[in-house]
Design a protein around this nucleic acid. Structure first.
Lengths: 65, 65
DNA sequence: GGAAAATGTAAAATATACTTGACATTTTCA
DNA sequence: TGAAAATGTCAAGTATATTTTACATTTTCC
């Protein structure tokens, strides 16, 4: 599943480390999400979406199966 | 994390088995979600929300930490 | 009241999200 | 240009979501 985390993060001018701390995960988790290594959990998706002030559906792209 | 799956399912008058098949998981998964045994993955949350025609944020309650 | 349908429980196995730590590469900027 | 900051890779370990199977309880309804 694709996402716009990196996009929103750059718009907000914060680093991976800052985002990681803001949503209480490790930097490695942010890196892996941004690079499509795996998908966020529902909780984490919500925290990140909330941090950027958007809906989960805006942040993650669910098109494919 | 609490959710309104059972609520929406009953509004739509379908069984756990029907919902499970519609979103392509086992009935056990639906039971466990409805009874708060664990949280849905982001993909599953999206499939269920889409099935009911609501936003993920309407279906899951993220209030607590 | 009894059969069928729906819902639930339990436990083991598998898949995937997330952490930890150590180190390599790229980007930024004085 | 060179040092510091930011981003990335790798691999092993832990936590949690989902499946599978088998059976128990509750609800529905004739």
């Amino acid at each position: 599943m694709d996402n716009r985390i990196k996009e929103y993060r750059k718009q907000n001018k914060i680093t991976q480390d800052e985002l990681a701390k803001a949503v209480d995960v490790t930097r490695q988790t942010i890196i892996s999400l941004e690079n499509g290594k795996y998908n966020a959990s529902l909780q984490l998706a919500h925290k990140i979406a909330k941090y950027f002030g958007v809906m989960i559906e805006d942040l993650f792209l669910f098109e494919e199966e």
